[in-house]
């Protein structure tokens, strides 16, 4: 049987040689999808989204990424870059969602799903509430019984944390299935469709250098997700 093809959304960057618009993806996502039994590919052209959706068996919306080879030109193109990415990602998400095939959002991808379903975000909860969830701090989360994340890793375990925004109003049919001890949403599961989101980075919680070392191995999440993508 053919392995499931997993589309992974890109982040925007500038190309080294031409300083022209480019599309990028951290290799940690690639390794996690490969270990989970999928074939990772990057869709590239917005006009062809319907064709990508037909090709893909599953979709991953990754965390925020950026790369600019020359810092002095970082700002001049930034708005256009991120706007293009945001627009592409919205269209890809809704086209994919229509097919009923599985979707996994990670960090900013999880936030994207919530926003596309009518929710919103707190943009500066670190200073608003004095809670630090950025720069890789390790903390524990608690999961709800009966949820996917609970089935994967149990009720209480350690994760990494790299987010400056948090989910505020929760989107339609989205259920929060894990919280930090301060009450910050850490995992979401759609109640009717196979759509999931992690506020942390499961793709970094595996392999030879898991982050955090005391957390659970995230391979079961990718294996489970990619199995669900088999047609």
């Amino acid at each position: 049987m053919r392995k499931p093809v997993i589309l992974i959304m890109w982040g925007s960057c500038l190309d080294n040689a031409f300083t022209a618009h480019g599309q990028m993806l951290s290799k940690s996502y690639v390794a996690a999808v490969t270990a989970g039994g999928g074939i990772p590919i990057l869709p590239l052209v917005q006009n062809d989204i319907e064709d990508y959706v037909a090709l893909g068996d599953g979709l991953i919306l990754p965390g925020a990424m950026g790369y600019v080879p020359r810092p002095e030109i970082a700002r001049s193109q930034a708005l256009e870059r991120y706007s293009r990415q945001s627009h592409f990602e919205s269209e890809l998400y809704h086209a994919f969602k229509k097919t009923g095939k599985p979707i996994l959002g990670i960090c900013a991808g999880c936030q994207k799903i919530n926003c596309e379903e009518g929710g919103n975000l707190h943009l500066d909860f670190r200073t608003m509430f004095g809670i630090e969830h950025h720069q890789g701090v390790t903390h524990n989360i608690e999961t709800l019984p009966g949820s996917w994340v609970n089935k994967l890793w149990g009720t209480d375990f350690a994760i990494n944390s790299y987010h400056g925004f948090k989910l505020a109003k929760i989107g339609k049919d989205i259920r929060i299935t894990a919280f930090s001890e301060e009450g910050i949403p850490e995992f979401i599961e759609h109640q009717k469709l196979p759509i999931y989101g992690a506020q942390f980075h499961p793709e970094r919680m595996r392999g030879d250098f898991p982050n955090p070392p005391e957390g659970p191995d995230a391979d079961p999440l990718f294996i489970d997700f990619i199995s669900a993508c088999r047609r």
Binding site: C13, Q23, L25, L44
Partner: peptide, 25 residues
């Protein structure tokens, strides 16, 4: 570490009627 590609490659393939994807692994 990451992969990246200049957008004009994908656009040129699309303009000629192909579906462009980036190989990753």
């Amino acid at each position: 570490p990451f992969h990246f590609v200049k957008r004009s490659y994908g656009n040129a393939v699309s303009g000629a009627g192909g579906l462009a994807v980036l190989a990753l692994e």
